[in-house]
Design a protein around this nucleic acid. Structure first.
Lengths: 149, 149
DNA sequence: CGCATATAGGTGTAGCTACACGCATATGCT
DNA sequence: AGCATATGCGTGTAGCTACACCTATATGCG
C-alpha cells in the first residue's frame, strides 16, 4: 500500500466522524430532552455563561461561522435564556446569560452529566480517554479557520 | 455561594466532537467544492454505489434517521446522480447510482483524496491513527439506535 | 470635513439532522 | 374475506451549519 493514497480501508475520516457525532449527539439529546434543551443549545448556554462577549468573539472561540452562531442564538434568546444587547460599538452585540438561562443551566446539568456518564460507561475509561486525546490532538493540529473570512 | 461554576464544561465529549466535525467537514467541503459536491453528498453517493438498497436498509447502515436520508437523497436525485425506483414491495424504494452519479464520483475522488491527505498531513500518521482507532472503538461500543423506533 | 475602506452583524439560500405523525401497502388472524 | 396491526416512506416542524452578500457604523487618510 505504499503508493499514494493510503486509506480506503478506514474509510473517510470525515464520514466516520460525522457518524459518531450523530450517535453521540442523539445520546445527549435523549437525556437533555427532559429539560427541553438540545446539547448544542446547552453547550452554547454554558459557554455564554463564562462571560459576556461579542458575537464575533464567541463565534471565533467556537470556530463556528458568525451567521451560524447568530441563528443558533435566536432560539435561546426566544426562550429568554440569553440576552443580546448592543455594545459600546453600536454595531456590536453583547451576548450574555439571563437569570432564566442560569436556572435552565442548573436544571440541565444533571441530565448532561448523566449523558456524559452513559457515554463513559459504554466506552470505558480507556475508550473515552483514547477518543478524547485523539480529538484534542486533532483540534490542536488542524487549522483553525479564523482569519480566513 | 456555590456559583463557583461547578463543573468543567470543557470535557463535553459531544461538544468537542461536534467542534472537530465542523472543522474537518469544512476541510473536505473546501476541496470538494471544485466539483460542486459536499462531503456528505459524496459519502452518500459512494455508499449508494455499493449496491441498490431500500431507504430503510441504507438508513440503518448509516445510522441515520430514515427521514434524514430521504431528504439528503433529494438533492442527489435532483442532480441525476442517484435513482429512486419503486421496489418489489410498492411501498419500498430502491436507491441506486446513475451513470452520471458514477461519473461525478470519479471526478470527485481525487479531490476527496486530497482532503484526506491534507488531514493526514496535518495530524501526522500517529495522530490520524489514534483518532481513527478512537472513533472505531466508540462506534463499536456505543449503542446502535436501530430497533428503537 | 468627506470619502474610501474595514469591521460587526444579519439575510438569503442551501443542505444536514431528527422526532412526531400521517399515508399507503403488506401481513397476520379469525 | 375482513379487519387489526405492522411496515416503508414521506411531511411538518424545528434546529444546526456555512457561504455569499448586504447594511450600518467606525476608522483612517487626504
Amino acid at each position: 500500500m505504499s503508493t499514494g493514497s493510503s486509506v480506503p480501508m478506514f474509510g473517510c475520516t470525515c464520514a466516520r466522524l460525522r457518524k459518531l457525532t450523530r450517535r453521540v449527539t442523539r445520546i445527549y439529546d435523549a437525556h437533555l430532552a427532559a429539560q427541553a434543551i438540545k446539547v448544542t443549545q446547552y453547550s452554547l448556554l454554558a459557554n455564554a455563561a463564562r462571560g459576556e462577549r461579542s458575537v464575533s468573539e464567541f463565534a471565533a472561540e467556537l470556530e463556528m461561522d458568525r451567521s451560524t452562531l447568530s441563528r443558533n442564538l435566536a432560539p435561546l434568546a426566544a426562550q429568554g435564556w440569553v440576552s443580546i444587547s448592543i455594545g459600546a460599538d453600536p454595531r456590536s452585540r453583547r451576548i450574555g446569560v439571563t437569570a432564566a438561562g442560569r436556572r435552565k443551566l442548573r436544571a440541565a446539568l444533571p441530565l448532561w452529566r448523566k449523558a456524559q456518564c452513559e457515554v463513559e460507561a459504554l466506552l470505558g475509561k480507556a475508550g473515552v480517554g483514547e477518543l478524547h486525546s485523539g480529538i484534542e490532538r486533532a483540534l490542536a493540529a488542524l487549522p483553525n479557520p479564523s482569519g480566513k473570512r
